[in-house]
Simulated scan of single mutants.
Amino acid sequence: MTKKQDFIYVVLAIAVVLVLALVIKPAATGEPAGLWGSEEPAITPAWTPSMPPATTVPTPTPAPTWNGKPKEIGFVDPATYHISTEENRLNMTVLSAGTAPGTTRWVTYATIDGQWSGTTGIVRVPSPLWRLDYSDITTTNDEIPFFNCQVMDAEDPNRFVRIVTLNFRDFLAMKDRPELRKDRWVSTFYEGYHDYYFVINTRRIGSYHLKIQVPEGYVN
């Protein structure tokens, strides 16, 4: 009987040692219990950020050079510039024609030809100084002719660069004086390298031929 009890005590002692070694100690140290075996920790692969695809920068198209011939500016739908199609004559006053300083020689860069009211396309002036020659206008009635040209800033449609207006008194005064027309019906602009468009209103006008002119030195 004594030997059997001794054997039982030995078995229990071994069981206690195993429990301490495989369960109690790992639990105290935070290690996985060895009683049921341990698994290798899962390895998460490192995240490698993907690089965006390389983009090819387009080669800018060089601006075409002017060949020295006047460009014809066509007309467009006034809605292009978000303006009313109704004729607007507010704050339209006759402006005295400016003259270029010194002995500037002018070359016609672009033209506007027509008879009726309309809004032109955009033209870029390639010089820091330019002028609008509106001396070539014919009328169909000498009593009530009217011509109005609003020079607009294409980059700011709310900006009126200048407004040129001719009424029956102007046409009557210049009726038989074409040379004086060429001298006075010209407006000089001391700004440039900019985009403009023109809003034209007419009444009893037979035709008009407007010339946008730049100094000869800027032909090329």
Results as ranks from 00 to 15, higher is better:
residue 37 G to E: 02
residue 63 A to M: 07
residue 124 R to E: 10
residue 125 V to L: 13
residue 163 I to P: 00
residue 77 D to K: 11
residue 121 G to V: 00
residue 95 L to Y: 00
residue 199 V to I: 11
residue 189 F to N: 08
residue 86 E to L: 11
residue 201 N to S: 12
residue 11 V to F: 09
residue 69 K to L: 10
residue 72 E to F: 04
residue 206 G to F: 00
residue 56 T to P: 00
residue 156 D to M: 04
residue 90 L to D: 13
residue 155 E to M: 02
residue 189 F to T: 06
residue 115 Q to H: 08
residue 86 E to A: 15
residue 109 Y to I: 01
residue 115 Q to K: 14
residue 123 V to T: 15
residue 130 W to F: 15
residue 63 A to D: 07
residue 211 K to F: 00
residue 186 V to A: 04
residue 119 T to D: 08
residue 85 T to C: 06
residue 216 E to M: 10
residue 149 C to P: 05
residue 214 V to F: 03
residue 170 D to W: 01
residue 51 M to F: 09
residue 56 T to A: 12
residue 168 F to A: 15
residue 163 I to K: 14
residue 125 V to F: 06
residue 35 L to T: 05
residue 202 T to H: 06
residue 71 K to H: 07
residue 111 T to W: 00
residue 76 V to E: 11
residue 54 A to L: 09
residue 201 N to V: 00
residue 58 P to W: 01
residue 92 M to N: 14
residue 112 I to E: 03
residue 185 W to L: 14
residue 125 V to H: 06
residue 117 S to G: 15
residue 143 E to P: 00
residue 188 T to Q: 12
residue 127 S to N: 09
residue 15 A to P: 04
residue 116 W to E: 13
residue 160 F to A: 15
residue 35 L to G: 10
residue 66 W to L: 07
residue 88 N to Y: 08
residue 114 G to F: 01
residue 136 D to Q: 12
residue 49 P to L: 08
residue 96 S to N: 13
residue 67 N to D: 15
residue 109 Y to N: 02
residue 89 R to Q: 10
residue 152 M to G: 03
residue 178 P to C: 03
residue 76 V to I: 14
residue 148 N to M: 11
residue 1 M to T: 11
residue 136 D to N: 14
residue 59 T to M: 12
residue 31 E to P: 02
residue 92 M to Y: 02
residue 162 R to F: 02
residue 189 F to K: 06
residue 13 A to W: 01
residue 90 L to Y: 02
residue 202 T to I: 11
residue 62 P to A: 15
residue 170 D to I: 08
residue 51 M to W: 05
residue 68 G to Q: 06
residue 82 H to C: 06
residue 170 D to K: 10
residue 211 K to N: 08
residue 70 P to D: 05
residue 8 I to T: 13
residue 117 S to M: 05
residue 46 A to E: 12
residue 79 A to M: 07
residue 55 T to C: 07
residue 175 K to C: 05
residue 100 A to W: 02
residue 77 D to A: 15
residue 158 N to K: 13
residue 59 T to F: 09
residue 185 W to C: 10
residue 190 Y to M: 07
residue 86 E to T: 13
residue 133 D to I: 04
residue 26 P to E: 02
residue 98 G to C: 09
residue 215 P to R: 04
residue 72 E to L: 11
residue 79 A to F: 00
residue 85 T to P: 10
residue 168 F to R: 15
residue 108 T to C: 10
residue 34 G to L: 03
residue 14 I to F: 07
residue 66 W to S: 11
residue 203 R to G: 10
residue 209 H to R: 10
residue 30 G to N: 04
residue 97 A to D: 08
residue 187 S to E: 09
residue 76 V to W: 03
residue 205 I to K: 02
residue 171 F to E: 03
residue 18 L to C: 11
residue 218 Y to E: 05
residue 205 I to N: 04
